[in-house]
Simulated scan of single mutants.
Amino acid sequence: MTSRFLVLTGLIFGLVGCGNDKPPLDNPSQGSIVIAADESFQPLVTQLTSAYSGIYPNAHFKVVFKPEQQAINMMLHDSARLVFATRTLKPNEKGVLDQRNIKGATEKIATDGVALIINKANTDSLITMNELQSVFDGQIKLWGQLKEGNQTGPITLVFDNNNSSNLEFVLKTFNVKNVANLRIFTTHSNREVIDFVRKNPSALGFIGVNWISDSDEPLSLELAKDLRVMGVSAKPNPTKRDDYFQPFQEDLGMQRYPLRRPVYILSRETHPGLGGGLINYIARDAGSLIIGKLGLWPRIPYDRVINLTK
């Protein structure tokens, strides 16, 4: 009698399974999803997804690195589940999800900084926000025009991509409407910006700070060789070196570095899936340790409990 019941039960479940052509939904510990991210966050996203897959071997992430707008478009058109970006969705972008009855989610995970890098031969390592404004207004064109300047030649502004978050952030910060009269050069990646600056003493490069801020990562140390990271002051007339700040962790967290920006994860997930599991790990679990290790400031620091015994 028992064996007959088990056979009938198996047949019923088999028939139900045959009638369902949909693949099983992913969940926080297993499945496969696509993530899109701005290329300036490549070291950060790579380490976070690798760490999560190390905890859950059946969790698989295909990460696509694109300029920020292209990455967001991938999510809007259902080609990616999550996006790592420096901004929230614009009203028209949110409308795309609303039309599909997708609520979506936005989670701030960190504070990042755009680092200004120069060739090691260039000792002009201090600059003010007012001077940067004049550079992007076209009033300052030469290194020698800077207050602390002793480098000769024109200032060449180097970015990773025409549509990158680095370029968009800087143009918005300095209210630049037209770049036609600026000496701007774009490459294809943050790494190429680093290589260009290393070879050109007159270059001023703009990169995501996580590319060079992980002191435990050999690649990060290698990329930072033969470069200087500029100190930036928000004061119009700084009088001492302490008035300048670099885009490293404490100055990001204490909001002293002027060219700081938020890091968000944007999601279109409609069920408790793998994307939500990754977000919880990053925002509320040990993922914040990785954010801190990369030199960024996590939104929610990871609590360490230390027991002291006699």
Rank of each mutant, 00 (worst) to 15 (best):
F65Y: 11
T187V: 07
K141E: 11
M75T: 06
V170P: 02
L126C: 06
D137R: 15
L15V: 14
Q255F: 06
M129F: 02
D226W: 10
A180F: 12
N163H: 15
S189H: 08
N92F: 11
P247K: 03
N58K: 14
H188K: 11
D98S: 07
N200E: 09
N58S: 15
T270P: 05
G277W: 01
G104S: 00
Y302K: 02
F5Y: 14
L259S: 02
T2F: 15
D285R: 01
P298H: 01
V16K: 14
F245P: 01
L278C: 07
Y52D: 01
R299Q: 12
Q246T: 08
I290C: 05
K66G: 04
P298K: 00
G31R: 05
Q246L: 10
N73D: 13
D303S: 13
E68P: 05
G31I: 12
N280Y: 08
D78Y: 08
D251V: 10
E192S: 11
N20Y: 11
I279V: 13
I127D: 02
L76V: 02
L44M: 10
V229G: 01
S288I: 07
Q255C: 03
A59C: 06
A224L: 10
K293G: 05
S288A: 15
P201V: 08
A115T: 05
V114E: 00
A224M: 09
L76I: 09
N163E: 13
V197I: 08
E168I: 12
M254E: 11
E168V: 13
A224S: 12
L308F: 13
E93F: 00
G17H: 15
G208Q: 02
V45Y: 03
D303F: 11
G231V: 03
V64D: 09
A105G: 15
A234S: 11
L182Y: 03
I265E: 02
V232N: 02
L296S: 05
L308H: 11
G208N: 05
L97R: 00
L274F: 07
G277P: 00
